[in-house]
Amino acid sequence: MEVRTIKVFTTVDNINLHTQVVDMSMTYGQQFGPTYLDGADVTKIKPHNSHEGKTFYVLPNDDTLRVEAFEYYHTTDPSFLGRYMSALNHTKKWKYPQVNGLTSIKWADNNCYLATALLTLQQIELKFNPPALQDAYYRARAGEAANFCALILAYCNKTVGELGDVRETMSYLFQHANLDSCKRVLNVVCKTCGQQQTTLKGVEAVMYMGTLSYEQFKKGVQIPCTCGKQATKYLVQQESPFVMMSAPPAQYELKHGTFTCASEYTGNYQCGHYKHITSKETLYCIDGALLTKSSEYKGPITDVFYKENSYTTTIK
């Protein structure tokens, strides 16, 4: 009895394709271990004539594949690729409408935090270190965002349907971005203890939790000093293409032309909904596939993004 075979390709990165001759009487799992086709788990399936010449994702289970996976995804987590594939199996079914010149995501599976993050990423200057993220990001900007969303979920250790947080998501993504040249110098002034300067680099240099107003941050924000008295913390120097200011959701007025974009969060910790506000020729609110415009805006804002380049204080 002759062994019926077909020729397929296996890959971990969709760049390096490895030619395989597979036995049609055995499952993919018996031949390769966990195997995925377009995100779908085909591990328990036997090869079919229609699979001839198709590319299958496999887990990096030998040295060659491990090197290829690390170079593309910059992670050695053995569960990463499987999590990416199972997320992709959902995100490829989502709709990605162009809204006001940006790629958004039609609401499904509690994905409003991903839509808000995706919209924000198209408006701030950011370059990702893992080629996987950078490639998928370019495709997302062009309207094909399924891979990018699935990668975000995998890097953030999230599953489809789980509630997510924009600030946490951005923080994970910033860790995989090139923020080497970003720098922030802060000064804390206390009447009792004097003053202390701190220099922050990388992710810490672009994120701040405690106030939404970048102007206020430049002037000074009140913080408790270690001595128990009130101290003032203010920005001395900022070198970065953008800054992200966050605070627990509270009524906040966004003035046209003073910011790049913002995240609105309605609801409580267990259950809520994100919308995205962007400042173009007027203010726009993007909620999944829905767009509304207004000249002014007041609502429960939790993150505001500002364009920056270089700032030095005039406070002496």
Score class of each variant (00 low, 15 high):
4 R>G: 13
5 T>L: 09
5 T>P: 11
9 F>T: 10
10 T>H: 11
12 V>C: 09
13 D>M: 07
13 D>A: 09
17 L>N: 12
20 Q>G: 09
20 Q>L: 09
23 D>S: 12
23 D>V: 12
24 M>V: 11
25 S>N: 13
29 G>N: 05
30 Q>I: 12
31 Q>E: 08
32 F>Y: 11
34 P>I: 00
34 P>E: 14
36 Y>T: 03
37 L>I: 11
38 D>N: 09
39 G>K: 05
39 G>P: 03
43 T>H: 14
44 K>S: 11
44 K>Q: 14
46 K>L: 14
47 P>D: 05
47 P>Y: 02
48 H>T: 14
48 H>C: 11
49 N>V: 13
52 E>I: 12
52 E>D: 10
53 G>F: 11
53 G>D: 13
54 K>M: 09
54 K>T: 12
56 F>Q: 02
56 F>K: 04
57 Y>K: 03
59 L>T: 12
59 L>M: 13
61 N>H: 12
61 N>C: 14
64 T>L: 09
67 V>P: 03
69 A>L: 11
71 E>C: 07
71 E>N: 09
72 Y>N: 10
73 Y>H: 01
74 H>F: 01
75 T>V: 09
75 T>I: 04
75 T>Y: 01
77 D>M: 08
77 D>C: 13
77 D>G: 01
80 F>L: 02
85 M>Q: 09
86 S>I: 13
88 L>I: 02
91 T>C: 12
91 T>L: 03
93 K>P: 11
94 W>I: 06
95 K>H: 12
96 Y>P: 09
97 P>C: 01
99 V>L: 15
101 G>E: 09
104 S>T: 14
104 S>M: 11
104 S>I: 08
105 I>K: 10
108 A>V: 12
109 D>E: 08
109 D>N: 02
110 N>M: 06
111 N>C: 09
112 C>L: 07
115 A>S: 10
120 T>F: 07
121 L>G: 02
122 Q>I: 02
124 I>K: 01
129 N>K: 14
129 N>I: 09
131 P>R: 04
133 L>H: 09
133 L>S: 02
135 D>T: 07
138 Y>K: 15
138 Y>C: 14
140 A>C: 13
141 R>E: 12
142 A>V: 13
146 A>H: 05
147 N>L: 06
147 N>M: 08
148 F>G: 03
151 L>G: 01
152 I>R: 00
154 A>H: 00
155 Y>V: 00
157 N>Q: 10
157 N>V: 06
159 T>Q: 15
159 T>C: 13
161 G>Y: 05
161 G>V: 00
161 G>M: 11
163 L>Y: 15
165 D>E: 11
166 V>W: 00
166 V>M: 11
166 V>G: 00
167 R>G: 04
168 E>I: 15
169 T>C: 11
170 M>C: 04
171 S>Y: 15
172 Y>F: 07
176 H>P: 07
177 A>L: 05
177 A>Y: 02
180 D>A: 06
182 C>M: 01
182 C>F: 08
183 K>H: 09
183 K>P: 05
184 R>P: 02
185 V>C: 02
187 N>W: 06
188 V>F: 07
189 V>I: 10
189 V>T: 10
190 C>P: 03
190 C>M: 00
190 C>Y: 06
191 K>G: 11
192 T>F: 08
194 G>H: 04
197 Q>T: 15
198 T>G: 05
198 T>F: 15
199 T>W: 06
201 K>F: 14
204 E>C: 01
212 L>A: 03
212 L>C: 10
213 S>D: 11
214 Y>Q: 03
217 F>D: 04
218 K>G: 05
218 K>Y: 04
219 K>D: 08
219 K>W: 04
221 V>M: 10
223 I>Y: 11
224 P>L: 12
224 P>N: 14
227 C>L: 03
227 C>H: 00
228 G>W: 03
228 G>S: 03
229 K>G: 15
232 T>Q: 07
232 T>I: 13
237 Q>S: 13
238 Q>M: 02
240 S>Q: 02
240 S>F: 02
241 P>L: 02
241 P>S: 07
244 M>E: 01
245 M>H: 01
245 M>F: 14
245 M>L: 12
248 P>T: 07
249 P>E: 02
252 Y>G: 10
252 Y>P: 00
253 E>K: 02
254 L>F: 08
254 L>M: 07
255 K>Q: 06
256 H>Y: 08
257 G>T: 08
257 G>S: 02
259 F>K: 01
259 F>E: 01
261 C>D: 02
265 Y>L: 00
265 Y>M: 05
266 T>A: 00
266 T>W: 02
269 Y>S: 15
273 H>D: 06
274 Y>T: 11
274 Y>L: 10
277 I>A: 00
278 T>I: 08
279 S>E: 05
279 S>Q: 07
280 K>A: 14
281 E>Y: 01
284 Y>A: 09
284 Y>Q: 13
286 I>P: 00
287 D>A: 02
289 A>W: 03
291 L>W: 15
292 T>H: 11
293 K>S: 12
293 K>Y: 12
293 K>E: 12
295 S>P: 07
296 E>T: 14
297 Y>Q: 03
303 D>E: 03
303 D>S: 12
303 D>P: 01
307 K>T: 10
